[in-house]
């Protein structure tokens, strides 16, 4: 008998997930683990994981990892990649980590065109701390710190960080995807594969923003959460390639 979907080599086995039912992190971890194997990157991979729910990503991904202080993932990854350009370096960050406390590191690593890949989980809320407003929280979305809904005049507007950095010359590839159904998951895997390959080809900075579910803090069921992404979140954050400068980078090499 042949197992059609074997356990990915770079995903630890026999671990009990700490993620909530219906959370998108587990899906993204699996995609990464599969790609590291398929693209033969796992043995030289170095992942920087954030403060946030994914701080425990080293319980699942079976590769070398370092946890970064909150928001500094891109700086830590820069430090690794500059001294070991032969390693495959990627960060795994949430919306608060990457687009609030780590905004400067995000923008400047992108602007330097660091040869790193950023996996950006956008679920429009601070998950680990219990559902507070994130920069990506939608206008009028209720969170524990916007109990009457996010009032743009008082709480600021929704931040589109990937769109902000996509035009920078150092950013070779940026795409926004979702992980809400097998079809979307396949598209997400393709996007991450492209981003990983961008680093392998030494073309510069690559980022994939993933609209991901947080049923616990959204106070929705897992299936309602998937629906909400497409009926609501996607309206603010359309799924598309935000920049693809790979060909021009290849020519200028």
């Amino acid at each position: 008998m042949k197992l059609l979907n074997p356990w990915p080599k770079y995903h630890k086995q026999n671990v009990v997930s700490h993620y909530c039912p219906g959370c998108g992190h587990g899906v993204v971890h699996r995609i990464i683990a599969e790609l590291l194997d398929e693209m033969e990157l796992g043995e030289k991979a170095f992942c920087v994981n954030p403060a946030g729910c994914a701080v425990l990503a080293y319980d699942y991904l079976d590769i070398d990892m370092i946890e970064s202080s909150h928001g500094r993932g891109a700086a830590v990854a820069t430090g690794i990649k500059t001294v070991r350009p032969d390693l495959f370096v990627f960060t795994y960050q949430g919306d608060g980590d990457l687009s609030a406390i780590g905004t400067a590191e995000t923008i400047h690593s992108a602007n330097r065109g660091e040869s790193i890949t950023v996996i950006f989980i956008n679920n429009a809320v601070y998950g680990m701390t219990g559902g507070q407003m994130a920069p990506t929280t939608l206008a009028w979305q209720k969170t524990t710190t916007t109990p009457e809904g996010r009032k743009p005049k008082a709480d600021g507007y929704t931040l589109h960080i990937t769109d902000m950095i996509a035009p920078l010359p150092g950013v070779a590839y940026a795409e926004r995807v979702a992980v809400t159904s097998p079809a979307f998951i396949r598209k997400a895997k393709k996007a991450i594969r492209t981003a990983f390959q961008t680093q392998v080809d030494q073309l510069g900075y690559s980022i994939v923003e993933i609209l991901s579910t947080c049923p616990t803090n959204w106070k929705l069921s897992p299936s309602e959460s998937c629906e909400w992404i497409h009926t609501t979140l996607e309206k603010e954050f359309p799924l598309k390639v935000l920049t693809d400068k790979r060909e021009e980078k290849r020519k200028s090499c």
Binding site: I66, R72, V76, T78, G79, T82
Partner: peptide, 26 residues
């Protein structure tokens, strides 16, 4: 060697974290 004028002191010390973790005197 590696030299980067970082965007902030926060970024600089965290770049040090990365380089040190990879085993280089930083």
């Amino acid at each position: 060697g590696a030299f980067i004028q970082s965007e902030s002191e926060l970024a600089a010390i965290n770049m040090v974290v990365g380089a040190a973790a990879a085993g280089v005197r930083a």
